[in-house]
Design a protein around this nucleic acid. Structure first.
Lengths: 415, 415
DNA sequence: TCTATTTTTTCGAGCCTCGAAAAAACACTG
DNA sequence: CAGTGTTTTTTCGAGGCTCGAAAAAATAGA
């Protein structure tokens, strides 16, 4: 069962709260931090003075704008960019990218690389990931000592401990424990995340007003993915990254899905499915491996022009997404939705049928109030989410325990 | 955002841990509690001595069995049955029941009553609930002062704050704030729970080995309901009790559901749907209001005898449940399932088609390892769950803060 | 320069948990 | 039956943490 609270946990947790308050607010004063955390001014003062001593926070004498008030001006506190750095690695179809992000969240270096992920061997794939990380770590401008975390996001299913890729559409390989591999290779804590989950994390940082405690990020791409935040927490399955919205069943025994099964939402709404329907191929036709963004754009253009099979294909996609969302809403209640990925640019073609379908489901009672946002470019989102997830780890697990907390970590390992 | 930890929270939380350790373990010694909570012996000793002083725990000199060891014998600690009492009220179709449960979890009194919920007016329905509670509270054997919580479970949708029934199949009335009504009437904290959620809570208390952190309880009755526990927490929707598994879409535009929509899982697997299919009525036929348990048993008997429309009706039910579970498993990964309710007695007729359907879904890869338990009688489960939920509230919210904690509660109200 | 105002730090009080040692309560042994 | 060993529980002082109140610091306005 859950464990009792030790006395030393208290400081650790409150330090964590202060750090995350600073990360969220940007340049808050001690007074503002006290207000948002509910802790007393004296406690905040003590914690902040520790954190500054440890070079985690910096005083940014940010009197500038706000000095309209009388009284002693507030001193803004900021994250010290040099306190740490993290690496965000994103592996997607035929594409590998890495970014080095400082502790304040700014990108300080990046590198991108085209690969042929579908045909690479297991060792080649791992080798490329290790190599791109190594090149960044060998950058003379980077203090390797400061790199505190590597986060790797991949399209596909990861395990719930965020250690391994279990399955991915971008490679025939399965069960690659990327997190363990990178940790062993570089001696830096690493984590393996699902791409759609990272999209959701990033959306929350980008627009916390809209994407607060409960929302859905759906990736409309070659396949269909989902990142789900419920009650302020990233939702994951019990064993895997979960949230395989694309493989909920839309029509039992229906169209052939890339996963080999039939009737999945993806088999109607994935790019290959839209392509297949637009071409008026059989629902049993083998899904094509890839459809270029240009081809999809052409398809969408044609659908907008004439009421032919292309438009019908998008309609079917909308219907599948709508009934899928309806079933999802039956479970979790309606929530704001972000449509991400190339096909989000064609959401105008998808939306009517989608809304019509939702209206026929349990979520339908609020179908008018459900709002959709679109964001055609998923890669920056995934990278941002990755970076925030990694920085969050540094905040909570490395800096919150503090210097003597390290002995605490060791004790935990021993126990 | 989440709030910092005050110093006084520490004691409150650790008291809560001790209380829940005792509730779980039955008669643990101080040493055992120290082991399960991870707190030091001295802390446990201090907390226990407080709790005994406050008559929340009792020392039960339970040397009896375990005195095979040398050394000072352990002193068992138990919950003091007289420390408090709770009321568990269960409102289901044409049936209202209440039980008084002491702090140790034993039923000390109960009352049941037949009603005609479908035709009762709003005031009559509320009146019956208030009256049955009042009769229990007026029982001279009961110390009214000790009643610390009323939990009311109802078939249907409740709100996520557990205050009101939003919609229920047992009555045409909607939006009844039962929790507020009972609180105002009796001045006792009350809560409004969903019946299936309470089933899940009870299952976990009954068999914590099987129903630990992730599992599903499905009610097979006139309608189809679900209680879901994920990561050790009862899963609820963002606005409502959520988990409306029965209204996930099985076949878009399909059979007419009791909710007025089409193609819901329930429209194939609810008693009325099985009845409708067994009678070979149209899928558009209006759902009947109720099918007696005897009729359903006769249906099942006939389905076991001959391969006619009855058997086919159960097959369709299994198929709908299977594809529904498959979609659910796509979202949360497979988990143990308990089939509860009268139709669980016919699970032998449902299971083959259910497993066949699951095998065609994303959850299918583990379809062999998914295990189903059946429990035909839902009412005792719901009442148990209600009682545990109420007792848990008393543990966490009343006894954990302790005597001076009450000022804390007041301060919270003010803030 | 003085005053009012707001932010931040300082300081002592009050709790809480912990480890070590002591006390308690028994079984076993000769 | 007294002495010894063992295990559980309590006691006690040390060390931390947060809090409120008061003091100090830093500025705008008069």
């Amino acid at each position: 069962m859950s464990v009792g609270i030790r006395h030393d946990d208290l400081r650790r947790r409150n330090r964590a709260m202060v750090i995350s308050a600073v990360r969220r607010a940007g340049q808050p004063s001690r007074t503002e931090i006290a207000a948002t955390t509910g802790l007393s001014h004296s406690t905040i003062s003590a914690i902040c003075s520790d954190l500054i001593q440890e070079s985690i926070l910096t005083e940014s004498r940010a009197s500038e704008a706000v000095s309209l008030k009388r009284g002693r001006p507030q001193v803004g506190l900021g994250l010290n960019p040099e306190a740490a750095a993290v690496l965000a690695v994103v592996l997607s179809l035929n594409f590998l990218s890495v970014a080095v992000i400082d502790y304040a969240g700014q990108v300080v270096a990046e590198e991108q690389r085209r690969l042929d992920t579908l045909t690479m061997s297991r060792d080649e794939l791992i080798g490329e990931c290790v190599a791109i990380v190594r090149r960044r770590l060998e950058d003379p401008d980077l203090d390797v000592q400061s790199v505190a975390r590597i986060a790797l996001a991949i399209q596909g299913i990861t395990d719930s401990h965020a250690r391994a890729m279990l399955w991915s559409p971008i490679t025939p390989q399965t069960n690659i424990a990327f997190a363990d591999i990178l940790e062993r290779e570089f001696g830096i804590p690493a984590i393996m995340e699902n791409d759609c989950n990272m999209m959701a994390v990033a959306l929350r940082w980008r627009d916390p007003d809209r994407y607060r405690n409960d929302f859905i990020a759906i990736l409309l791409s070659h396949g269909i993915g989902m990142g789900l935040v419920l009650k302020g927490e990233l939702f994951t399955g019990t064993h895997s990254s979960g949230g395989e919205f694309g493989h909920m069943i839309h029509r039992p025994g229906g169209a052939l899905c890339r996963c080999g099964r039939r009737g999945c939402v993806e088999a109607y709404a994935g790019n290959y499915a839209i392509w297949r329907n637009a071409r008026q191929l059989s629902e049993n036709a083998e899904p094509v491996a890839d459809v270029s963004d240009a081809d999809m754009r052409a398809l969408a253009a044609r659908a907008r022009e004439t009421d032919g099979p292309e438009r019908e294909a998008y309609r079917k996609a909308g219907e599948a997404l709508g009934f899928g969302l309806g079933s999802l809403f039956a479970l979790i209640d309606p929530a704001p939705v972000a449509m991400v990925g190339a096909s989000a640019a064609a959401f105008d073609l998808i939306e009517p049928a989608l809304r019509e379908a939702i209206a026929q489901t349990a979520g339908g009672q609020h179908s008018g109030s459900i709002s959709f946002d679109t964001e055609p470019n998923e890669l920056p989102l995934i990278r941002e989410g990755c970076a925030m997830q990694a920085l969050n780890f540094v905040d909570q697990e490395i800096f919150a325990p503090g210097a003597q907390g390290k002995s605490g970590t060791i004790r935990k390992d021993v126990a």
